[in-house]
Amino acid sequence: MKPHVVAVNISEKKGTIKHPVPEISLKIDHGIQGDAHAGNWHRQISLLAQESIDKMTALGVKGLTPGIFAENITTADIELFSLPVGTRLQVGEAELEVTQIGKECHHHCQVYRQIGMCVMPAEGIFAKVIVEGTLRAGDEIRILP
């Protein structure tokens, strides 16, 4: 299959699990309208592959749904963590630039506390908005030259 968006997720308050929404609106120098982590910084949007979530499910973690790792965009059929910083992605109408691979997990999430590990710090990526647009589940993802 072609790389695509599985779900788009937001949280209205920091420190809460993100939940899927029908669509998200991306703005330059901001990120996602209505998301608590939006702002003019390098981690405007977080992405995590469904395949990474499936690894955690295979380890016995129950109830993993899109947004539970605080990712804004859940993807499929693209190995996000292998993309170099600076990679540009066409996601639906929008264009993103990869700004960070992984992150330090300062306050271990519920999943980490349950099984002693979490996939987001190693396999999640962050991006900033280069071209504005609206994203929905099913939108295609293309790596730009």
Rank of each mutant, 00 (worst) to 15 (best):
F126N: 03
L135T: 04
V131Q: 13
V91C: 08
K103I: 05
H19E: 15
V5Y: 03
L135D: 03
D54L: 09
H106T: 12
H42T: 14
H37M: 09
M1P: 14
I45E: 02
A137V: 08
M1Y: 14
C109V: 02
V85G: 12
E79R: 00
P22L: 08
E12T: 15
L80W: 08
G67N: 13
I101P: 02
D77K: 13
E132G: 09
I24M: 09
P145D: 12
L89N: 00
A36E: 05
A49K: 01
L64E: 02
P121H: 03
G60Y: 03
I141N: 05
V111K: 01
L26P: 01
I17T: 10
G15C: 11
V5T: 07
Q100G: 13
Q110W: 01
S11D: 01
L135I: 07
Q44M: 10
G116K: 00
I141G: 06
T99P: 03
G86V: 13
L83V: 12
W41T: 10
K13Q: 06
F81G: 14
P22K: 15
H42S: 15
D139G: 03
Q50N: 12
I24W: 06
Q50A: 14
L59I: 06
T57P: 12
A38Q: 03
E79H: 10
Y112I: 00
I32A: 04
L26E: 03
A58M: 13
T16P: 07
I73F: 04
P20W: 00
V8Q: 06
Q100I: 10
V91A: 05
N72M: 08
E71T: 05
Q90E: 11
G60L: 04
C105G: 02
D35R: 01
V6S: 09
H4W: 12
L47P: 07
V98W: 04
L96V: 08
T87S: 15
H4R: 15
H19Q: 14
M56P: 04
G34C: 12
A70H: 03
I17L: 13
G60A: 07
M56R: 05
L83T: 11
I68R: 12
E23F: 15
P84R: 14
V119I: 10
P66G: 14
Q100D: 13
R142Q: 10
G31A: 13
L135G: 05
L144A: 06
W41P: 09
G34E: 12
P20K: 04
L48D: 04
T16E: 13
K18D: 05
K128P: 06
S25D: 14
